[in-house]
Amino acid sequence: MEQLMAQVPQQIVNGITLGSVYALLALGYSMVYGVLKMLNFAHGNVFMVGAFAGWAVLSLFQRSGLIAVPALALAAMALGAIAATALLGAAIERFAYRPLRGGSRLAPLISALGVSIILENAAMLLTSGRAKTFPTELLIPQDAVVHVAGAAISATRLAMLGTSILAMVILDAIVLKTKFGRAMRATSQDAEAAEYMGIRTSLVISATFMLGSALAGLAGVMIGLYYTQVDFMIGFSAGMKAFTAAVLGGIGSFQGAVVGGLLLGLAESFGVLIAPPVYKDAIVFAVLILTLILRPYGLYGKPQQARA
C-alpha cells in the first residue's frame, strides 16, 4: 500500500503528459466531427504519418549536422509534420470524403476506414515494416529530470506539455477570434444556414480538416520524441484513444476534447496502479464502454437528435 501511494505523484505526471497528447488528438477528431458530423477513422493514421514526417525531418538534420542546434531541429520537425499532415488532411477530405458528401451517412465512414488501411499499409511498405528510432537524446537530454514531490518530470515531458498548451492556446484564438473560426463554428452549428449566410462551407470544411490533421501531426512528433520509437502500427491505438477521449468529453465539444484527453490519460495511468500495466489499453476501452452506457453524449456534449 505504501508502495502504491508512492507511485501516485509519478502516475499523475505520466497521466497528464499522455493526456495532453490525447487531448490534441481528440481536438482534431472533434473539430472534424463538428463540421462534417462524421467520425474520421483515419485520424490515428494521420497522426502516424505526422510522426514519420517528424522523423524524416530529424534524419535530414542529423545528416546535415544541423542537429547541433536542437531548438531549430525541434521547430523544423514540428513545422514539417504540421505541413505534411495538413496537406494530407486536405487531400483526404478532397478525394475520400467530399465526393461522398450528401450521400448515405455510412459511406464516408467506410471511406475513412479505407483511407486508414491505405495509410497504414503505405507506411508499412515505405518503412519496410521497421520501427524508426528518434534520437531524442540529441535534442533533449534523456536524463535531464526535475523532481517534484516524489515525481520525476523529464525535460521531454515538460516540452510536450508546453507544446500542447501552446497549441491549444493558438487553437482557441483561431476558433474564437478569427473570421475563419467564426465560419467554422457557424458551419458546425448548421452547415446549410451558414451557406445561406455566404459562408463557403466547402472551404471551411477543408480548412478544418487541415487544422485537425495538423494537430494530429504535432501530436505524432511529440509521441515520437517521447517514446523514442515509432512504427506504422501506432496509428490504430492512437485513433482509438482519440476517439475515446472525444466521446468521453462529448464529441464536437472543444473543452470536452481537452478534458476527455486529460481524464483518459489519468485513467490509463491510475488504472495500472491497480491492474497490471499490460492491461492499460483495456482500461481505455473500459472507459469508452462506461461512457457509452452511462453518458452517451459525453461530459460536455448535449443530447442531440440524429440528423438525416
Partner: peptide, 21 residues
C-alpha cells in the same frame, strides 16, 4: 515481476512501479 506487450511504446506505467520497489 511485471509485464509489457510487444506493441507497447509507453513504459512509464511499468517503470513507475519498478521505481517504487
Amino acid at each position: 515481476r511485471g509485464q509489457i506487450s510487444m506493441e507497447d511504446r509507453d513504459f512509464s506505467p511499468i517503470l513507475t512501479r519498478v521505481k517504487s520497489s
